[in-house]
Design a protein around this nucleic acid. Structure first.
Lengths: 206, 206
DNA sequence: GTGCTTTCGCTACGAGTCGTAGCGTAATGG
DNA sequence: CCATTACGCTACGACTCGTAGCGAAAGCAC
């Protein structure tokens, strides 16, 4: 994740257990304290490691929280529910469930906010979270094309733009609903979202 | 905004010029320092007031930044471009222009992040920013109904849900595009968004 | 004008956090 | 057994926080 010596063969190896303990402790600290009151000293105590160990592995609070939050989104999968609409609803509901957890809510937004002034952090977020989950959109489109629900893609660039738009619309709507409007992304709401999105995409494709 | 004595007629009045200077200094500090490195001492120096004056008027960093950012969104207007699609594109482009400014980017997201652990702050954001701009969606719908582009609303509750959904989709998509995906919400992208949104809403209304 | 009230600028303070340096110890590989 | 790297621990100066206390300034009522 942030290996400084990719091929350091000698010396005492870094404890892998410490990594997982630190990331878990970071998430728990986000729940208990929130972003602004989270201190690396506190995380170190929770994880049962020395504070200096944290600074040896991560450059600072931003990088640590990105890694801690990124793990949360790895549990997303694309269920096969038989139709494109049902598949999308399934993914969106999973996404909403993750965003309902406090460690994701405060952590994700805070890191995005910091990233506005930190190009390296932006890149880290894009690589660790955004691009990693865009796979779901691509897989969903491919499956829908196999089913005949969507026409096969002709123009690669045009297709990439569509994937980006869908991703921003889905993720953005859910995030805004849960974090800004502060209302639950429940089944009814998700159903309305997917209906508008799908009929809009179908109509717009013509 | 945060009047403690709504009818205090006696004594020295608070300087209104200080308010505007402080909020402007806060936005500039967001540009120069970002959220996490912004200190109230620094804002006080920039605004040319004493640090204690800041603490007399705002409870803390969160509340101050909410007020400073909320002012940014007051410049949004609903242009009359002749059609619903064109009107929406106009508003979205304005919204994107605001989000392109660094003081809005880092400030807004950071405050949202903090709000996940602070009910009072959530309420303040909802009142100062979200509800205040939802007027644009309502006005746009009313105008479209007068034009005959949308059917007149029959069910009030159903209509409110539609407004909420539209607002989350528009604001969320633009925010996600600019802040998370980190790509410009330019005319081409906004055009694609409104096309999907409008045809989706039209199809979904039936 | 004379008071009364509230805000203002300034200074100082204890408490808490930051990130780093130094040192002895632990765990690997050659 | 030896070189090398990671680890836990302690201590440190620098910085920020939010508050308290003070005299001066700016209004209103009379």
């Amino acid at each position: 994740m942030q290996r400084r010596h990719p091929a350091s063969r000698t010396g005492r190896p870094r404890s892998a257990a410490a990594d997982t303990a630190i990331l878990a402790a970071t998430r728990q600290a986000l729940v208990d304290l929130g972003w602004s009151k989270l201190t690396l000293s506190d995380v170190a105590v929770r994880a049962g490691v020395a504070k200096t160990t944290l600074y040896r592995r991560w450059a600072g609070k931003n990088e640590l929280v990105v890694d801690a939050v990124a793990e949360l989104f790895d549990e997303l999968t694309l269920p096969d529910r038989g139709s494109l609409a049902a598949d999308i609803e399934g993914v969106v509901l999973q996404f909403a469930a993750i965003l309902a957890r406090p460690e994701a809510r405060s952590g994700l937004m805070a890191v995005v906010a910091e990233a506005t002034r930190d190009e390296a952090l932006r890149e880290r977020i894009r690589a660790s979270i955004v691009d990693r989950q865009k796979r779901l959109v691509i897989a969903g489109r491919t499956r829908a094309q196999e089913r005949g629900e969507l026409p096969p893609e002709t123009d690669a660039e045009r297709s990439a733009r569509a994937v980006d738009l869908i991703f921003d619309m889905v993720a953005g709507s859910v995030v805004h609903r849960t974090l800004v409007s502060n209302q639950p992304a429940d089944e009814e709401w998700v159903h309305g979202l997917t209906r508008v999105l799908l009929s809009g995409l179908a109509a717009s494709a013509r």
